[in-house]
Design a binder for these strands. Structure first.
Ligand SMILES: [Mn+2]
Ligand SMILES: [Mn+2]
Ligand SMILES: [Mn+2]
Ligand SMILES: [Mn+2]
Lengths: 158, 158
DNA sequence: CAAATAGTTTAGCCTTGGCTAACAATTATT
DNA sequence: AATAATTGTTAGCCAAGGCTAAACTATTTG
């Protein structure tokens, strides 16, 4: 080590933040996030299709494209995937429908989404912001946290 | 419309959940999430490098690989990207270091991460769960919500 | 009913973020 | 010093999720 190069500082040079978690636990944090990201988009599609069916009576690819701010080609490709996964049934130029499994996923997702949204509002977050945050947060909230959020909302917003 | 096929239900058949937001607002929700996902991994790398530097004095690719539960090849590739983005400096078989910009990003990310983590703990979430949830949520929490979380934590955990 | 408009699909391209396998360089052990 | 073990890089593969452009189908309208 003869060169006068940039050297790591001693570990005591700063004392903010928590300690590093043990490697296995730390690894699990990131793994869980990666897993969530694998299903996230699927869930959002299925949830949106469910919402469109409920509120509009039908779910067309074009609506999904504009509501997601994505090209119709992107939606078309995704619908094929949802089909292969057995979550939707689709026939060209007809409304999409959810399979039994798709319907279950839509309900679960919507329930979770609502809990997070209502929680944020109960916390005091403005509606528009709450909606944006909830859209991303919903996929990363454990059942444990979800339950706590629900209780909080009930207590603070009768 | 001559065939007796599956028909959309009338929009009034169920009345749960909120109404659909206007298209532009709805679109913005998804766009914000997509944007967050673009920077998410970069932030996690930079934050982890910062944490390793602070707590261990050095940040080696191998540590990142095991803490993220990802192959070394993946880390190696990512480090090249971080380099190109001007966030880290690296020389083979030496510790990584953060550039000025990288350091700033690491601090910002850690601060945000800590706020979310402490908030979840203050809410009553168990530590392990809170850590997992925070890892994913942190990237989807607006400044507005962040501020509210911080105030909440201060009030409920002196 | 013909033409215009709107909706849908397909093909082909790109980036990101994973992986494995093979190789290279450094560091540790005997 | 030689060998072993660890660490890092590179090449090449893959899937997901975007995009545009072009073609096709359905619906609406003049
Ligand atoms: Mn979502
Ligand atoms: Mn996410
Ligand atoms: Mn983080
Ligand atoms: Mn994170």
């Amino acid at each position: 080590m003869s060169d006068h190069e940039q050297q790591p500082l001693p570990p005591t040079s700063r004392l903010s933040g928590d300690a590093l978690p043990p490697v296995e636990q730390h690894a699990q944090q990131y793994e869980t996030v990666r897993n969530a990201h694998e299903t996230e988009l699927i869930e959002d599609y299925v949830e949106l299709i469910g919402d469109l069916l409920r509120h509009r009576g039908e779910a067309r690819a074009a609506d999904i494209a504009s509501r997601m701010a994505v090209s119709q080609a992107t939606v078309s490709k995704m619908i094929r995937r949802l089909n292969e996964l057995g979550l939707v049934t689709s026939r060209p130029y007809r409304s999409l429908f959810l399979t039994e499994e798709g319907h279950k996923m839509a309900e679960t997702s919507r329930a979770r989404h609502d809990i997070v949204l209502h929680f944020l509002r109960a916390l005091g977050v403005r509606d528009t912001t709450a909606r944006i945050d909830a859209e991303g947060m919903e996929h990363h909230v454990s059942d444990e946290t979800l339950a706590i959020m629900q209780r909080f909302t009930e207590k603070h917003q009768p």
